[in-house]
Each structure stands twice: as structure tokens, then as C-alpha cells.
Design a protein around this nucleic acid. Sequence first.
DNA 1: TTGTTTCATTGCAATATTACGATATAATGT
DNA 2: ACATTATATCGTAATATTGCAATGAAACAA
Lengths: 109, 109
Amino acid sequence: MGLAKTEMFTDEQNKISMFAKAFGHPARVAILQHLFKIDTCICGDLVSEIGLAQPTISQHLKELKNLGLIKGNVEGTSVCYCIDKDNWSSMKGIMAQFLDQDISSNSCC
Amino acid sequence: MGLAKTEMFTDEQNKISMFAKAFGHPARVAILQHLFKIDTCICGDLVSEIGLAQPTISQHLKELKNLGLIKGNVEGTSVCYCIDKDNWSSMKGIMAQFLDQDISSNSCC
DNA sequence: TTGTTTCATTGCAATATTACGATATAATGT
DNA sequence: ACATTATATCGTAATATTGCAATGAAACAA
């Protein structure tokens, strides 16, 4: 199958899993960390920084862009990618709500 | 390929992506939310709660267990699954460090 | 013992993901 | 115009993930 049955879950659950899936590859984690670290960033920078082929990086960037976590400005022949602050914040809120759940103390194990 | 080149990334990046991957499916998100909500839990409970076949739920539980996020106690013919508090906390710390990164204000876009 | 309940495992089909070579595109420099 | 640089897209091979029917295993009940 390989196909998640998203229709049987809440919007919140699907959102959480979509964001989490984006972070589910170390290259995308590395890309995001790098984008946080420096102020301007182009794809070529990421290729040499991360060590995957240019088409691979481009593909990862596309996924992050589709989710709205990053945005890219064309500047001449290169593209300036950076974190989309607003969307990152709202994503963080959704993820925090999931991660910060409190465990009921009368647990059985 | 379908194979992440984990050796070219830091331990932290690989850890983040491993946890994120676990949350990258709505069924696993739903399972964890359910385990948080109630104090005791057995697999059959989850099957009726979530609506996937029993082997599918069992498989998702196994992945969460392998990561250490949940643990299961055998109780007669049923199994009591619950959140592993300590491991959940340390996971939360690792994820928070990633999610709470601050954006340098002199961003280009 | 025989059946029942509960969960795990196996095996497999369908689909998704990852990676990259080859190629396309688009802006710029000469 | 032509070459160069930077990134995107296409095509495809290798591998991973998801889902479930069938079956197995373990505890319990009659």
C-alpha cells in the first residue's frame, strides 16, 4: 500500500504528521538548521554544505517550500531561500501542542 | 534509492529525523494522543478507536516501541501500552531545541 | 483438552521516498 | 550571439512504508 488513510484522522493529526514527515529526513533537518544559522542562503551553498547532489537538495527544498516552511526569492541567477517565519511559528504551535501533552499520573506501567 | 545517507549528518540531525519520522503518520499521532488521554490501554482498544486493522496497529505500535516512546506490559491475554515518560521527555527536549531556533533578524527575504 | 481472546508475525501487493544523471530553463557576463 | 552560472525538472533505479489477510503464539475459560 504505502498510502496513509488520511481521511480517518482529524485535521490536527494530519497536520502534525505532515510537518513531522518534513522533518523526517536528516537532509531537511540540516537544510533548516543551516537556514536558521545564516541570514542569506542560496541552494548552491546548501549543496556544498550538506553533500548531496544538487537535484537532491533542490527536491528537498521543494518539499519544504510546498509545506510553506521556507520561501525562495530569485536573485539574479541564484535563489535566496529562507525560513518563512510566520508559518514556522504556527507549525511550532501545532507541534508543541502535541509534544507537550501531559501524562496522566495514574498510568498502568 | 529511498535510502537516507545518515552517515553524512550529525547524530542530532539523525535523532531529530528519526523521532519526526515516527510522528510522520497520522495513525501513530492518533495512537500517542490516545495513550496520553487514557491511563491504561490495550491494543484492541486502539484498533476500535483508530479504525485500522489489528496487524496494522500492531506494526505502528512496534515502531513506537522500538524508538522507546512507548512501552508495553503483558497483562494476561492483553497488553497494556503506555507512554515512556522519561524517553518522551528527552525526545521533547531534542525536538524543542530544533523547533525553537531563532531566526536571525537580518534575513534576506 | 478444546475453544476463545488478544496480540504478534509473516508474506505480499500497492504506493511513497530518496538519490542522481541528464537535461531544461533562466539570468548574466563577454 | 555564445558561454557561464545557478537552479529546476524529468526519468528512473533502489529502497522504504503502509495496509491487511492469513497464521502463529500465549494466556485463559469451560
